[in-house]
Amino acid sequence: MSDRGNPDALTPYARSLGIEISGTEDGVPVMCVAFEEAVEGRPEHYHGGATGGLLETAGYAALRAELAERGREALLKPINITVQYLSAGKSRTSYAKGRVTKLGRRSANLTVEAWQDDRTRPIATAVMNVLVADPKD
């Protein structure tokens, strides 16, 4: 059975980093990852790839939730993702939430923010463009 249409499904990569759903806001999952060895880069700081993985996972979760709300089933294929690292992620839980800024018939544009203690002070943001393909194609 496929998890493709399930907005709460996590990829094996996300699970390997320890990313989980901490809750939902306005029907959109908020993702989190605890600080553990799997996400550590330099001592006591998140690896940039782990932060990028959290952002990407949150973006896809937001898009899957939007598609599910509209009753659409689709294969999601990345076009590009641009990450802006704003400050170092320290040794505590990080959170991320995506927002669909545009959903068309064949593509979607998303913005994502990651934060730790203070949501108004993001540690990283991302802009994602995703191909929304018909599963029959």
Results as ranks from 00 to 15, higher is better:
17 L>Y: 07
124 A>P: 07
65 A>Q: 05
136 K>W: 06
55 L>F: 10
92 R>M: 13
93 T>W: 05
38 A>T: 15
14 A>G: 09
132 V>L: 07
82 T>S: 13
29 P>N: 07
1 M>S: 13
119 R>C: 05
118 D>G: 00
64 R>M: 12
83 V>L: 08
9 A>C: 02
50 A>G: 11
83 V>C: 10
59 G>E: 03
52 G>N: 06
97 K>L: 14
38 A>E: 14
34 A>C: 06
5 G>Y: 01
45 H>Q: 14
54 L>K: 07
6 N>M: 01
68 A>H: 13
67 L>A: 07
116 Q>R: 12
13 Y>D: 01
56 E>C: 07
59 G>Q: 08
28 V>D: 03
65 A>R: 12
108 A>Q: 09
80 N>D: 15
67 L>R: 04
108 A>R: 03
39 V>N: 06
107 S>F: 06
126 A>S: 14
35 F>G: 04
95 Y>F: 15
100 V>S: 09
5 G>E: 11
26 D>V: 02
95 Y>M: 09
50 A>T: 11
134 D>L: 02
3 D>V: 01
74 A>L: 11
2 S>N: 10
14 A>P: 01
96 A>L: 12
53 G>E: 01
15 R>C: 01
36 E>F: 00
40 E>L: 02
13 Y>V: 06
59 G>K: 04
115 W>A: 10
32 C>R: 15
81 I>L: 13
115 W>M: 08
57 T>E: 08
97 K>Q: 15
65 A>Y: 11
137 D>G: 12
101 T>Y: 02
94 S>I: 05
113 E>N: 11
13 Y>L: 13
49 G>L: 09
11 T>G: 05
132 V>M: 08
